[in-house]
């Protein structure tokens, strides 16, 4: 008998995306460009994070027509975003046939206390995290993939680096704890105990972990890969740059050849201007997307 929507199948799709780049797209044309450039998946949106930031107001799930039109032209997996805690948006996305749901801080949260019970769905979920405790809480709720949050729509990699270093550092710390100290560590990190024990055994998260939020150049992507992530999300970084086609290709190559500085030098040439960047301290605290999520 065939069993659909099992944990192995949900987690498995993320395994297949590893070493790849997931690109934000808002139109079928952009989806074709992304696939042509070698993206391993696309995220179907109405606006990229930089435009969501600029527009202000409440950001919601995209119009199903936008998502469906992108699904129609793509042979690679299509992801879509639901608001934190908005399980009905997630139900809608599942019924549309989206391949992955991002319960995302880029949209305005629908619930300021609770996330979606992701175990109830057949479609897999990816969630953002800034530290190990947050990552393991999301996995406990059923996320089959994690991405560190960074600060979306800024073209500034500093927060992505901070969050990846934090998660990796905490994994190394937990790995070296004697067993009797794990319960207290779980309490302090606000992490589910069983999952923390698992991390201590594996020396990594029990699911695939991508980097996101501010990646704008091939070198940014390679930096995140060398820091230990499994793959890259690029949001505004591609279609807010001068030459999206060349930049998309270069970021795909950089994610594969992240350890080869000669290739990185070659592919970083003549890409035109990157997206305009934002200094994190110039963002008002209430505008920071990374603080959304509980």
């Amino acid at each position: 008998m065939a069993e659909k929507g099992t944990w192995t199948v949900k987690k498995g799709l993320a395994e297949m995306l590893k070493g790849g780049v997931i690109m934000d797209v808002t139109t079928p044309e952009q989806a074709k460009i992304a696939e042509e450039a070698g993206a391993c998946a696309v995220m179907a949106l109405e606006r990229v994070p930089a435009d969501i930031r600029a527009a202000g107001g409440v950001a919601r799930m995209a119009d199903p027509t936008v998502i469906q039109r992108i699904m129609e032209v793509s042979t690679i997996p299509v992801m879509a975003k639901a608001r934190i805690g908005h399980f009905v948006e997630a139900q809608v996305l599942e019924s549309l046939g989206a391949d992955y749901i991002d319960e995302s801080e880029v949209l305005t949260p629908a619930d300021e206390e609770y996330h979606i019970d992701k175990h109830q769905f057949k479609v897999p979920f990816v969630c953002g995290a800034r530290n190990l405790g947050e990552a393991l809480r999301r996995i406990g709720e059923g996320a089959a993939m994690i991405r560190t949050k960074g600060e979306p729509g800024t073209g500034n990699v500093v927060e992505a680096v901070r969050h990846m270093r934090k998660v990796m550092g905490e994994i190394r710390y937990v790995q070296n704890l004697p067993k009797e100290e794990l319960m207290t560590a779980a309490k302090e990190m606000q992490a589910p105990y069983e999952l923390l024990v698992k991390v201590a055994e594996l020396g990594r998260l029990p699911v695939v972990n991508f980097a996101a939020g501010g990646i704008a150049t091939p070198a940014d992507a390679a930096l995140m890969m060398q820091l230990g992530c499994d793959g890259i999300f690029v949001g505004s970084g591609i279609f807010k740059s001068k030459d999206p086609v060349s930049r998309a290709k270069a970021i795909v190559s950089a994610t594969t050849h992240y350890n080869d500085s000669k290739i990185l030098a070659e592919i970083s040439r003549e890409l035109g201007e990157a997206m305009p960047g934002v200094e994190i301290q110039n963002i008002a605290p209430e505008q920071r997307m990374q603080d959304r999520g509980w």
Binding site: E3, T6, T8, V9, L13, E94, G97, D99, Y100
Partner: peptide
């Protein structure tokens, strides 16, 4: 699509009686 991805026991003639758990993803 992914919502149709599944696991199933299959039989492989070379491997005899014991079923093989196969994971199909898109």
């Amino acid at each position: 699509r992914q919502v149709e991805s599944f696991e199933a026991d299959i039989s492989v003639s070379e491997f005899g009686e014991e079923p093989y758990n196969a994971v199909f993803i898109r």
